[in-house]
Nucleic acid binder design. Structure first.
Lengths: 108, 108
DNA sequence: ACCACTATACGGTATCACCGAGTAGCGGGA
DNA sequence: TCCCGCTACTCGGTGATACCGTATAGTGGT
């Protein structure tokens, strides 16, 4: 699927929140997970900017742990504010996606 | 529903294409249609920037017609390139929305 | 004369995903 | 030993997009 970047604006951050929320994990693994999901063109740099933003906005708790196969990893977990933000994201997604599907179906 | 602007990035233009594609219409009416659809905060200025972009990108055919209740209206209709773009938009939407729903359901 | 509604245009802003380059740890093959 | 590939993160800058504020202007009602 060709260029999805514009359509992912506003949703990719939510996807990252969801991934972190389901399991404490780190940037490189999150990127691989997104790629496996079908967002093949999402690259490390993009995920790291999102993670730094989440940290700056106080939505995550960060723990640095050594790795056996490379440099140390920064593990991310949602805090209370992060869980709230994730819930808001899914509410928005539900709202928007149902309305766009409605437009697609030609209903008003 | 509070601020949806970030989530609408990349999709609002497609919505406008769909509306134009279903019926030759003009900016002000498109804005009202979007508001009725549930995108209450979308404002005229936003729609006009999209319409000017569509015109600049050669996706629409424009016809100016007088109105009985105000200034003249610019009616927009999709041309061949516009219909192609609309089809691409719905393909992308299908691709992205199914994958995000899949993530939401916890399936991989 | 004023105001509300209709209708469009345009310069500037914020946010976001993305790009490119850099730094760094680890292991395997020539 | 030296290079390469994979892992892992950072940061400055870019382009696209929706939005904001303001301006302009036609029509009809009070």
């Amino acid at each position: 699927m060709d260029d999805l970047t514009e359509m992912l604006k506003g949703t990719l951050e939510g996807c990252v929140l969801e991934i972190i929320g389901s399991e404490e994990t780190y940037g490189y693994a999150i990127t691989r997970r997104l790629n496996d999901l079908g967002f093949a063109d999402v690259i490390e740099g993009t995920v790291y900017t999102i993670l730094l933003r989440l940290e700056r906005n106080g939505l995550v708790q960060v723990t640095k742990r050594p790795s056996e196969v490379g440099p140390p990893r920064k593990f991310y977990a949602l805090n209370e504010a992060g869980r709230d933000e994730l819930a808001k994201f899914w509410a928005k997604w539900q709202y928007v996606s149902t309305r766009i599907d409605r437009l697609k179906e030609g209903r008003r």
